[in-house]
Design a protein around this nucleic acid. Sequence first.
DNA 1: GTAGGGTTAG
Length: 616
Amino acid sequence: MQSPATRTPKLFRTITTATVTTSLHNPPNSTTTGNREAEQSCLALLHSCNTLPKLFQTHNYILKLGLQNNPLVLTKFASTSSDLEAIDYASSFIFSPRSDTRLYDTFLFNTVVRAYAQTTHSRDRALCFYRVMLGYGVLPNKFTYPFVLKACAGLGSLNLGKSVHGSVVKFGFDDDVHVQNTMVHMYCCCNGGINYARKVFDEMPKLDSVSWSAMIGGYVRLGWSSDAIGLFRKMQMAGVRPDEITMVLVLSACTDLGAFELGKWVESYIEKEGVQKNVELCNALIDMFAKCGDVDKALKLFRDMGGRTIVTWTSVIVGLAMHGRGLEAVSLFEEMIGTGVAPDDVAFIGLLSACSHSGLVENGRKYFDLMIKRFKIVPKIEHYGCMVDMFCRAGLVKEALEFVQNMHIKPNPIVLRTLISACRAHGELKLGESITKQLIRNEPMHESNYVLLSNIYAKMSHWEKKTKIRELMDKRGMKKIPGSTMIELDNKIYEFVAGDKSHGQSKEIYEMVDEMGRELKRAGYAPTTSEVLQDIDEEDKEDALNRHSEKLAIAFALLNTQPGTPIRIVKNLRVCSDCHSATKFISKIYNREIVVRDRNRFHYFKEGLCSCGDFW
DNA sequence: GTAGGGTTAG
């Protein structure tokens, strides 16, 4: 007899809509056996099938007992599968030409649709079997749609989602709260679907914590964190008790905003309301504290918690990396391996970025090697990115270039931009210029490429060329991502953009900025006007620098907080070198600790110095 | 047998 292992691949390779439909139309060719004892023993065997080989063995057993058409066994077989290979195997078995098509019912199809809906790469097969089900005249029930909608959510196609929505209405399941909740989630996962989600949400007669979480989660996924927080407030007003999943989402909105005060409030709310702190919620808390600036609190939570997963370890490692505490990140990574938790690709991204941010070049090399050789992880562009960044920060531009040339993947724009910045910083201007030109050809609408080229020309003193870049950007209608800085004060979040005049205190803020400017000059600060990408004279350039959103936010904080209070701000982009050097002076002149979170990492300014050691 | 969630290079 042919072994199942050699026969299986052939079976599941042929699963497509066409073959499934064909096999369904084969006439029933056998009868159901009524051997209850055999049936029970098969079910018991299936119950303990946690690996593929065991499933194959059970398959043989089922065939031997002639139970391949037993409906109970068939459905159990389908629901036993958890990995794709097993699901394919089970479904090809169920829908083989030898199966009795009279046994196909809603339950059986639901089982197969559910199994595929839970996979990551074969959700389309869930829809395929759903269509076969309808084509075969088997009616869906209220359990069918949550599975189908989940598959649609994974596929992210708005049109597909809308058409399934139509069927939900047609079959009259649109009044079921489970179906409605999954519908909200499905629309949230589709590109351009958020307004449809909100419409379904707004029209729901009764909202439970799952409904609110689905909608809040949709906003969080889009990065609409303020809206997510706003919706959470509405949920509280509606008197719906949030659960641990809602709190994970609210925390991730705080993390995204860098809203430390709000995050701390959420933590106390969790304690006060007695929300169950499971691993995911603890992870979210750790991530929030690390990314809102209190990595020591994150470490404490980490030390106090049991049942850590790889995500828990990675969150702390990434947090330490962002704070430039590379050596601690490395020793935590070693501790993790020591406790038997196997690192995954994400953990290595965290570790390598920690090495890069702390100049641990030798460690970085060692772990990159270890990842490939010992842990058999194929490096992704993110890993290469960390390595290139690490060499560049350390001034090893030649090494970085060589590394890029030997990569097994084509460098992406992020890697190229890292290289270009390094070329500029270390005087490889010609090379930097040529890479940038190539990059602009590939990505003509990306603003930062032009900024890079302009900065290179500034350093080369090619002023006409620099002016031309500005003109080119205008001609191409480039959209500039506005730099903005966020600051929390008295439970409110204030956001400043460059040249912002919308704030009620605007007049005082600008007077404060001017005063800061005078004090800075007196202390020996020189504005870095080459950073300004505008064709204006030097004095206006200084003025433009003074209106940067970080300076406005710092002025606002100096005006509205007691002397000596630390200032925490969050910038949406990387902090510019002029603001970086100005903030060092400000921390000294005004005797304030200033904590800046920018797009990449934290900067702790104190007594005229920054924790990043000017390497960022 | 049904729904919502955590870590990812610059």
